[in-house]
Simulated assay, not measured.
Amino acid sequence: MSRRSNTLVVQQAKAALQQMKFEVAQELGIQIPQDGYYGYMATRDTGALGGNITRRLVQIAEQQLQGFRR
């Protein structure tokens, strides 16, 4: 049994998250490995990538919550 904590709740979101990853990487000037293996990337780059994705997801959630309050 897998106990991964990063399992997607909405499987359809996978493509959108992948697209966001590539957009953020391009903005930061980070080259994403073609084979999908991140083991050779610098920790600083993967951290920056993950941090910026998280920041963007929080911004999206905040915008959606503001829409509910109106």
Rank of each mutant, 00 (worst) to 15 (best):
M1S: 13
R3N: 12
R3A: 10
R4N: 14
S5W: 07
N6E: 04
N6F: 13
T7K: 14
T7E: 04
L8W: 07
V9Y: 11
V10K: 11
V10T: 07
V10P: 02
Q12I: 04
Q12D: 10
Q12T: 12
A13Y: 12
A13L: 10
K14C: 03
K14V: 04
A15S: 12
A15F: 15
A15L: 14
A16T: 06
A16S: 12
A16I: 09
L17I: 11
Q18Y: 11
Q18N: 08
K21W: 05
V24H: 03
V24Q: 04
A25V: 00
Q26M: 01
E27S: 06
L28D: 00
G29V: 00
G29A: 01
I30W: 00
Q31W: 01
I32D: 00
I32N: 02
Q34C: 04
D35V: 05
D35A: 08
G36D: 03
G36L: 05
Y37P: 01
Y38F: 15
G39I: 04
M41Q: 05
A42W: 03
A42H: 14
R44F: 03
D45W: 02
D45T: 03
D45L: 01
A48L: 05
A48K: 14
G50R: 15
G51Y: 06
N52C: 05
T54A: 15
R55T: 07
R55N: 08
R56Q: 11
V58S: 11
V58D: 12
V58I: 14
V58G: 07
Q59L: 13
A61Y: 10
E62P: 04
E62R: 13
Q63F: 08
Q63L: 15
Q63N: 13
Q64C: 06
L65C: 07
Q66A: 15
Q66N: 10
G67Q: 15
F68W: 14
R69M: 05
